[in-house]
Amino acid sequence: FAITERPDTTASHLLQGRAVLIVDRSPGALVGPMNFVSFFQTVDDYSVRWLVGSFVRLLRFAGFFIAVFTPSLYIAMISFHYEVIPLQLLLSVGESRERVPFPPIIEAFVMELVLEMLREAGVRLPAPIGQTIGIVGGIVIGQAAVQAGIVSNIMVIVVAVTAISSFIIPNIEMSAGVRLLRFPMMLMAFAFGMVGIIIGMMVIIIHLLTLESLGNPYGSPISPLRISDMKDTFIRLPVWLMKKRPISVGPRQLRRQGSAKKRGDDE
Score class of each variant (00 low, 15 high):
residue 217 P to F: 00
residue 85 I to K: 08
residue 223 S to Y: 15
residue 93 V to E: 05
residue 93 V to N: 07
residue 153 N to H: 11
residue 89 L to Y: 07
residue 213 S to R: 07
residue 4 T to H: 00
residue 226 R to W: 05
residue 194 M to I: 15
residue 267 E to P: 12
residue 217 P to K: 02
residue 190 F to K: 00
residue 181 L to I: 04
residue 120 E to P: 06
residue 219 G to T: 02
residue 231 K to F: 13
residue 80 F to Y: 06
residue 163 A to F: 15
residue 124 R to Q: 11
residue 242 M to F: 08
residue 131 Q to W: 11
residue 250 G to L: 07
residue 235 I to V: 14
residue 18 R to C: 10
residue 83 E to T: 10
residue 257 Q to T: 14
residue 62 A to Q: 04
residue 8 D to V: 15
residue 101 P to R: 04
residue 1 F to T: 01
residue 206 I to Y: 13
residue 16 Q to M: 12
residue 44 D to R: 06
residue 210 T to R: 15
residue 68 V to Q: 07
residue 160 A to E: 08
residue 97 R to T: 05
residue 266 D to H: 15
residue 202 M to F: 13
residue 12 S to Q: 12
residue 166 S to I: 13
residue 241 L to N: 09
residue 133 I to A: 08
residue 127 A to F: 07
residue 167 F to L: 15
residue 202 M to W: 11
residue 208 L to D: 02
residue 82 Y to H: 14
residue 37 V to G: 13
residue 231 K to H: 12
residue 198 I to S: 11
residue 116 E to N: 14
residue 56 V to H: 03
residue 226 R to S: 01
residue 244 K to P: 03
residue 247 I to E: 13
residue 52 V to C: 01
residue 53 G to I: 10
residue 45 D to V: 01
residue 96 S to R: 04
residue 102 F to P: 06
residue 62 A to K: 02
residue 104 P to M: 06
residue 161 V to W: 00
residue 155 M to E: 02
residue 248 S to Q: 13
residue 139 I to H: 01
residue 106 I to H: 06
residue 151 V to F: 01
residue 103 P to S: 10
residue 103 P to F: 09
residue 212 E to Y: 14
